[in-house]
Design a protein around this nucleic acid. Structure first.
Lengths: 114, 114
DNA sequence: CTATCATATGAATATAAGTTCATATGAATG
DNA sequence: CATTCATATGAACTTATATTCATATGATAG
């Protein structure tokens, strides 16, 4: 039992009733979690410039192929990037423009608050 | 040494040269990390409805005051929420409209991809 | 069909992050 | 000024996450 001396139940029930379902809140959290990592952010910015194969991303970021591959899987599952095969290589590219839009919003917030 | 049989150095140098500084990429990642948690997402949605004191948030979310307080600190440090004191209580509210905008973008991405 | 390059994946490890518990701070009230 | 309510904070614990290493898959060329 928390501090229930207060009785704000009418208001709180209203707030509660307008909360989205937990599944949506969870999905939203999971989506932003994907943006919440420097390596993935660097991959996305690299792909802003050009579509790239896995080993190219690894070279650009000076990281191991395996680490990149693991992160690309997370980005793919979140539908932030897609890939196509070309011979032996897998070319990755941004899935759509939401990625840019979301990151730009974040950038605006950062620069305004700095 | 990774798979350097490829020589895409011209292109890769170009991509590399257009990457933002690591400090920015890190700040962006850190910002989105704040959105990347269900509890914080629930707090933000609660605050979409109304400014609320800590114990009200705890009640609405059926969580302990301490857990909420810890998460509010993270939201405060990211400048996503602000607070003011009112007597014994601390009232929290959204710091600005970037919060809504960013979450709406995420929501759009989710619904389009579903 | 074997060797090689490109990528993916599983297990292991290390680090980060969220919640709880206990307690400290800070304001109001009698 | 002692008590109570509201919030904050530090430490401990637990769970999640990122990277590495070793290896598997998959495609191509010889």
């Amino acid at each position: 039992m928390s501090h229930s001396k207060h009785n704000h139940s009418e208001k709180l029930n209203l707030v509660l009733s307008h909360l989205p379902e937990d599944s949506l809140l969870c999905d939203l959290g999971d989506l932003f979690k994907v943006f919440g990592d420097t390596t993935r952010m660097r991959i996305l910015f690299a792909l802003f410039q050009s579509e790239l194969c896995v080993c190219a991303i690894a070279e650009v970021l000076h990281m191991e192929q395996s680490a990149i591959s693991h992160q690309l899987r997370i980005l793919r599952e979140a539908k932030l990037v897609s890939s196509r095969r070309e011979g032996k290589t897998n070319i990755y590219f941004l899935a759509d423009d939401h990625v840019r839009a979301i990151i730009e919003m974040g950038y605006e917030h950062l620069t305004e608050k700095a």
